[in-house]
């Protein structure tokens, strides 16, 4: 730093800087930029880049959690292996495909519900009424509550014997007998979806709300003067204008949904009817100690997510300012 400082002559205040000095300042700035970036880049390489490469490597080995150093290269055996008329490997494991199906189902249903509900919440919060700040703060609470805690809170509300949801539904006459929400294989996925929708709708709503507040008011004034029905205005004016923000929210939520772990793990533990790709991979990695096999599953999940991320980056490149 001090060396760089001494290389600058006394500043020329009266006129513009001479050309030679300008390029030197520029070069010095670029050098400083890389110096400033290096701690972050080293940090990311340590916690993201290198571990990712190691995971990829482990997926081609027979590594075990107790002794990672003893891992031996076994090629694609963790992914797929044909031996004595039977297929082995992650890609031949019905449990894996069950987890893939669960994850896709969960993501599709919960993200759709969150988008619809999120838009409704955002429209409500966009209207001017007394106590709006209070309602907005209330909406943020589910978002701020730790996932583990919300899973436990809902587990208690969904409890089959003493849960308030069963109680309320029976008092209202909807149910005759209490339901085992988290234990019943047909219901547990819906329990997970219910909690996830509750927890993440505020996030979608806030993104949509931010977009709503940036909308030009003249469209609405014109529509009002022409006496167009508000519902029609929503579908013809508002929805097309907030679509970009909505797409961003959808991408974020889809990526989060595909990698979901904590909610499923706490609410229904390792039950097969809700097992997602992350839960499957962690079970192999940590509980069965089979790092090679688990890494193969993680790598597959990573491939799915990066495919979606690449599509998103491609579509949103203009927003990034990379081209500038």
């Amino acid at each position: 730093m001090t060396e760089a400082m001494s290389s600058i002559e006394s500043p020329n205040r009266s006129g513009g800087p001479p050309r030679g000095r300008a390029t030197r300042v520029r070069r010095q700035r670029v050098r400083a930029a890389w110096l400033f970036l290096s701690p972050m880049l080293i940090g990311l390489a340590l916690v993201a880049g290198w571990p990712l490469l190691r995971t990829l490597w482990f997926s081609f080995t027979d590594a075990e959690l107790n002794d990672l150093a003893a891992a031996r290269w076994i090629g694609f055996e963790n992914y797929l292996l044909y031996e004595d008329g039977i297929w082995y490997g992650v890609l031949a494991d019905p449990d894996w495909w069950n987890a893939v199906g669960n994850t896709l189902y969960f993501t599709a249903v919960s993200v759709s519900l969150e988008v619809v509900l999120g838009v409704i919440v955002a429209l409500v919060l966009n209207a001017k009424f007394r106590g709006r700040t209070l309602v907005r703060a209330a909406m943020l609470i589910p978002w701020a509550i730790p996932t583990v805690v919300s899973a436990q809170m809902w587990a208690w509300m969904l409890n089959d014997q003493f849960g308030i949801l069963n109680h309320a539904l029976m008092v209202l006459g909807v149910l005759d007998a209490p339901l085992a929400w988290t234990a019943d294989a047909n219901l547990s996925m819906w329990a997970v979806i219910m909690v996830d929708v509750w927890k993440t709708t505020p996030f979608v709503a806030l993104l949509v709300l931010a977009a709503l507040q940036m909308l030009p008011s003249d469209c609405y004034e014109a529509a009002e003067v022409d006496g167009i029905h508000p519902v029609r205005v929503f579908f013809r004016v508002t929805l097309p204008l907030i679509t970009p923000a909505l797409l961003v929210a959808v991408i974020f939520r889809v990526l989060d949904g595909l990698r979901i772990f904590d909610l499923v793990y706490v609410l229904t533990s390792n039950s097969a009817s809700t097992m997602t790709m992350s839960v499957y991979a962690r079970q192999q990695l940590v509980e069965f100690q089979d790092v090679g096999y688990g890494s193969a599953a993680s790598t597959l999940l990573f491939l799915v997510i990066s495919l979606i991320a690449v599509i998103y980056l491609y579509l949103g490149r203009r927003q990034l300012g990379v081209s500038r």
Binding site: V30, L46, R54, T55, R259, I305, L320, V322
Partner: peptide
């Protein structure tokens, strides 16, 4: 403004989309 700024931004954004499980075994080793 410098060359490679866009690439760094893309890397940063890419890392934010990482599934945590994908680095679990490698990070465990580190």
């Amino acid at each position: 403004r410098f060359r490679g700024r866009g690439a760094v931004l893309v890397i940063v954004l890419g890392v934010s989309m990482f599934p945590q499980i994908a680095v679990l075994s490698g990070l465990f080793e580190v």
